[in-house]
Design a protein around this nucleic acid. Structure first.
Length: 885
DNA sequence: CTCATCACG
DNA sequence: ACGTACGTGATGAGC
């Protein structure tokens, strides 16, 4: 029996477009010696390799559009009319994509009056008839209408190498419809990119609902009389013609008069010599060396890459390191650098790459001297990780010059990867493989053979050195050097020291609380089972939902994707019902037990200390985050949970925990950047800011008239303002009607015109420049700010309003932390800074130092940055974290 | 591995 | 009409 023949069909236009836009930011980097742009060709080649590897086809055809005019434009003159003109940088690349295909031995084809889709549709029909297994590659979801059990559509999701495979099953899971209904979907919902409108006011959601009920557009119109009188019904009737035309336009033709057939598209295989010439003309050096590598081992990258010197116990003494800068990389077995085994290191200096798996060599000369010498600098990837790891070996390497991870995060914090290989790719350097690829993923991760391992390490240190100049220059261009040199880089060492110090957690306290919770949980469990009349898993939202809403028939069922929602918001409305009340209590205790009691005990070291890791390069706003354990979300709002804080204690007898936090830092930042006079005045006079807002929005003349409920609502309004407000969101949070929320907002903006002006201007600015900045020039690019999609755009607009506020507050506390650490060291205090929780700093100190801290910490914090309004800091101290309030 | 839930600022 | 607050991380279920 022979295996099924495999056919690969590629939508050449779509993939070339995708490839171009995937590297859009890099367009000007991809220019060859003749001034030709090459980014799309480059991407296409990478996609091709990936898909060839995945599919291993016998036959391939790449289809292109023949030109602008097709039978579709004749039928419908506005077809694709809204599209922007293809940029010259892209259109000039099409001939070269085709040339690449020629070199690969792949047939390409275009047909006058037809689009690439139709060629693919026709060819795949032919292939099904002959029993082929077909894969269609495209970036256009329309093509999924061709999916069958023999034909799969590989849709590029992000860029061109990340691919989602559509089978009939997958389609039905994703959209709940069959392939043939794709055209009905397009008919109803339209397609903005092709500029056909669909039925007015019907978007994808509505269309899917209708299709679920009626199957096809035609059937829907048969039953149109059964519709209740509604706006939607009117629109459907009104736009019937449009819907049918659009469906027709979206329908891929499967009878195009092709002049070629399956017999003409055998995959001939690459012509290495032609490819070599082609890569040379494109200046694709990396692909060239790939070719060479494959052809013969002796043609290596020797000219480009430094040679590897493996250090050993025997040869280390003879080494001399004369330069005063090196790239250094330490490889660990797992992510937790406080505890992970060491795998090895690489040090690149003076054109030599020293490597070893034996990290104890780092303690020997000349390496130790090099790492610790304050006059010699290191370039690294993740300085904090490097510092902490080396500290475990007794080495203090504080003089870091370039930190690739940190710099690239500052340049662009939207999906900044923590994988060196991936990150380099984003910066346009493709020489480093991803760790997953070299070591394997998850449970299968393991160190590879020495040679591969050392080469991988070499590629990392080389990449660090390679990207240094370029990225540092970009920092300068963005005026972000201050942010890097004065804030983030010193902060990484401060954070490292806090992590190493760790905070002590009292195991006994935790265990006592744990057994108390355990009892409560099992009591509640039996009560719930009794009330439900059966036992089930209360932790399963699925099972719980069925008990509450199906079996017990409680009202207010709300659906999520997978079933009923049983979130607090839903259950809260049913309060008073015994089983619901008990479930809510159960949840509360279960959460405390599993996350905070068991979770904390799990990550304690021998000294009962927990050492979190702050991720400095993750958030899009500039905040830190904290993992293993997360010490930034220890309960505080509910009394029962707050007691967890009693377990956090000083690490020495006679010491206390001391805590200081900024009061309303985000609103103060807003008052500063918006320059709103009323708001600034409120802070300058040290008013209760929420009460002040309440007075304004309720039109009161004296603070005495503010009721607690008014203050609560005003507080929600203030939060809403910071988040980038919407009337819906506000109504939700204070539980009022939407129009009422809207009135609140309008009154608010009348009272604080400066804030309104800020909101308008920041969105405008974001739209113009594509990003927003914080006080210290931290940047956030806003992908969707110019999007035609309402949701994407609205989200980007709220983000534009929120990021400068949240981000500047993050900047400020970072500055304070650096100054704080400096002061503690200079004053030779025993006190140590342990934690940061966004607007709060937590210390431990000997009792006798507490009076000192009470003055010192607030003064350092409130003078960290000079704003138009004062910063206010509140402090507390006690035997445990719980007692600091 | 993704989802729902819930802890924090 | 669209479908909603902004940032995070850990857990247990259920595929």
């Amino acid at each position: 029996m022979t295996e099924k023949q495999k056919l690969l069909l590629i939508d050449g236009n779509s993939i070339t477009f995708r490839g171009f836009y995937a590297l859009f930011m890099q367009t000007e980097r991809f220019v060859n010696h003749d001034g030709l742009h090459t980014s799309a060709v480059f991407s296409f080649k990478r996609m091709l390799d990936k898909i060839l590897d995945d599919v291993n086809p016998d036959k391939i055809l790449v289809a292109f559009d023949a030109g602008k005019k097709t039978f579709r434009t004749e039928k419908y003159s506005d077809y694709k009319a809204g599209r922007k003109k293809t940029p010259e940088e892209l259109s000039e690349q099409f001939p070269y994509v085709k040339k690449l295909l020629d070199c690969y031995g792949i047939k390409h084809y275009e047909l006058k009056n037809y689009e690439a889709d139709d060629i693919i549709g026709t060819m795949s029909k032919e292939a099904e008839k002959h029993g082929y297994e077909t894969t269609i590659v495209t970036g256009d979801r329309d093509l999924t209408q061709l999916v069958t059990n023999q034909t799969t559509v590989a849709l590029t999701v992000k860029g061109v190498t990340e691919i989602e495979y559509y089978t009939p099953n997958h389609l039905s899971e994703k959209l709940g419809i069959s392939p043939s209904q794709i055209t009905d979907l397009k008919g109803l919902a339209g397609d903005t990119s092709d500029n056909y409108p669909g039925v007015s006011k019907v978007g994808e959601k509505t269309a899917l609902k209708l299709l679920n009920q009626y199957g096809t557009i035609e059937n829907l119109y048969e039953h149109i009389d059964e519709f209740k009188k509604s706006k939607m019904k009117e629109h459907l009737i009104e736009d019937k013609e449009i819907a049918l035309t659009c469906k027709n336009l979206a329908t891929i033709r499967r009878d195009a008069p092709l002049e070629i057939g399956l017999a003409d598209i055998d995959f001939a295989g690459k012509d290495i010599e032609k490819l070599r010439e082609f890569y040379q003309s494109m200046d694709f050096h990396k692909f060239l060396s790939e070719l060479n590598d494959k052809k013969s081992e002796e043609v290596s990258n020797e000219e480009e890459l430094p040679s590897i010197v493996e250090l050993t116990f025997e040869n280390i003494d003879g080494q001399r390191l004369n330069a005063d800068n090196a790239s250094f990389y330490l490889e660990l077995a797992d992510e937790n650098y406080h505890t992970s085994p060491f795998w090895g290191f690489a040090l690149l200096t003076d054109g030599q790459c020293y490597v070893s798996k034996d990290v104890s060599l780092l303690k020997r000369e000349p390496l130790r001297e090099f790492l610790e010498n304050k006059n010699k600098t290191l370039d690294v990837f993740d300085g904090k990780k490097t510092y902490v790891s080396l500290k475990r070996l007794g080495i203090e390497a504080e003089s870091i010059d370039f930190d690739l991870l940190l710099v690239s995060y500052l340049l662009n914090n939207t999906d900044n990867s923590n994988d060196l290989g991936q990150l380099c790719q984003k910066q346009g350097y493709f020489g480093v493989k991803s760790d997953d690829e070299v070591y394997g993923k998850g449970a299968k991760k393991e160190i590879c053979a020495d040679e591969t391992f050392f080469e991988h390490l070499r590629s990392k240190v080389f990449a660090i050195a390679f990207l240094k100049q370029k990225l540092m220059q970009k920092l300068k261009d963005n005026s972000q050097d201050h942010l890097y040199f004065e804030i983030e880089r010193p902060l990484s060492i401060v954070l490292a020291k806090m992590e190493i110090a760790g905070i002590k957690a009292d195991k006994e306290t935790l265990e006592t609380m744990g057994s108390r919770f355990k009892e409560k949980i099992s009591d509640l469990e039996s009560l719930i089972y009794q009330e439900a009349g059966e036992t089930f898993n209360i932790n399963s939202p699925k099972q719980l939902g069925m008990i509450l809403f199906d079996k017990l028939g409680l009202p207010g069922a709300k659906k999520t994707k997978t079933g009923y929602s049983t979130a607090v918001g839903v259950l809260e409305k049913l309060r008073g019902n015994d089983i619901v009340d008990n479930v809510l209590l159960y949840r509360q205790f279960a959460k405390l037990k599993s996350t905070y009691i068991d979770g904390l005990i799990k990550v304690m070291d021998q000294d009962e200390k927990v050492h979190t890791r702050y991720t400095q390069t993750l958030t899009t706003t500039g905040r830190l985050s904290s993992v293993e354990p997360n010490l930034q979300n220890i309960p505080v709002r509910l009394e029962e949970g707050r007691k967890i804080r009693q377990a956090f204690i000083p690490s020495h007898q006679g010491w206390e925990i001391f805590s200081s936090d900024y009061s309303q830092i985000e609103l103060r930042v807003l008052a500063h950047i918006s320059k709103d006079e009323n708001m600034q005045k409120a802070f300058k006079d040290d008013f209760d800011i929420h009460a002040n807002t309440a007075m304004k929005i309720f039109g009161l003349s004296s603070p005495d008239e503010v009721t607690p409920n008014m203050r609560r609502q005003a507080k929600a309004v203030n939060f809403g303002i910071v988040y980038g407000i919407s009337d819906f969101g506000l109504a939700q949070s204070i539980g009022c009607r939407r129009d009422q929320a809207k009135t609140f907002m309008e009154t608010y903006f009348e009272s604080f015109p400066g804030v309104k002006r800020y909101m308008t201007e920041i969105v405008e600015l974001a739209r113009n420049q594509g990003y927003v900045e914080t006080l210290f020039k931290r940047r956030r690019y806003l992908e969707g700010i110019r999007s035609k999609n309402f949701n994407q755009r609205s989200f980007a607009e709220r983000t534009a309003m929120n990021t400068p506020i949240q981000g500047s507050a993050a900047d400020i506390i970072k500055v304070a932390m650096i100054k704080m650490q400096e002061t503690l060291e200079k004053e030779e205090l025993k006190a140590r800074m342990l934690l940061q929780v966004h607007d709060e700093l937590i210390f431990e100190a000997p009792e006798e130092e507490i009076p000192v801290l009470e003055k010192l910490v607030p003064s350092v914090m409130d003078s960290a940055v000079k704003l138009d309004v004062p910063l206010k800091v509140e402090s507390g101290h006690g035997k445990t974290w719980f007692d600091t309030k």
